[in-house]
Design a protein around this nucleic acid. Sequence first.
DNA 1: CAGTATCCTTAGGGATACTG
DNA 2: CAGTATCCCTAAGGATACTG
Lengths: 138, 138
Amino acid sequence: MTNKIYAIENDPYNFMNKTIFSKWKPYIIKGIYFDGGSTRFSRFTKQLPITEKVLSQSLRELEEDDIITRTIFPEVPVRVEYSLTELGKSIIPILDLIYNWGWNVMNERNIKIDTLGEMWHGYKEKEDGFMIHPFKKI
Amino acid sequence: MTNKIYAIENDPYNFMNKTIFSKWKPYIIKGIYFDGGSTRFSRFTKQLPITEKVLSQSLRELEEDDIITRTIFPEVPVRVEYSLTELGKSIIPILDLIYNWGWNVMNERNIKIDTLGEMWHGYKEKEDGFMIHPFKKI
DNA sequence: CAGTATCCTTAGGGATACTG
DNA sequence: CAGTATCCCTAAGGATACTG
């Protein structure tokens, strides 16, 4: 108790863990980026095994942390687009390094790697047919 | 159910989350590095608010994942040193980028940043007196 | 389409005491 | 010194149903 001096709640790793490294946030950020900088709610629910609750929660937190913005287009039916802020974009190179590190280790150890993720990260050619819903045309 | 196609258990982000991004592992890895590439059990318990249980658990997992090695020196009392493997060392630049990203954002937002962490990461001069136990002399 | 609202489960982490 | 062994607790995530 007296000899614990590292205040983790005031530390950048902890900050990053809360801001970016939850279970789904890296996929959300990378997914927006993959879709050309902006994408929609249903894109995620259709292609990630994430529930609506967790998705909307994550999106809200990312918005609060200034990683993404939410834009409402008052069409019928309504369209909502999520985009990366400049701060959000600045995390992409780090995510790519992380992905790359993990990819290499998994590859060396012959661990199966998800194909959609590989397409999202440029490790495999995009195939429209592979996804249940085709990629957004930008 | 039918339209969820991203197998997260086969994905590098998930792999990295399990391998590196638990609450304490970044601190453990960086702590070893800070101590010159190898350090001891009690260094962590003395300077991080981590319990022995969680520490030994984390160390064991890191060893299993080939991030660190454990060396026993049969002295009296016994000395055990934890070192980074080549794979473990390869994670340092990524941790540094993460720390740097978080540090910058926290700094812009005027969020207090832990000083020991800043010393560990070279953002502040090392001060022997600041830590309860002085730095290891290499 | 783009979400809320409830309820529930579990794994990661913490407190404390003890040991070779 | 370098850990185990127990017991405990919460917060993150999941299942399911419903809505403007």
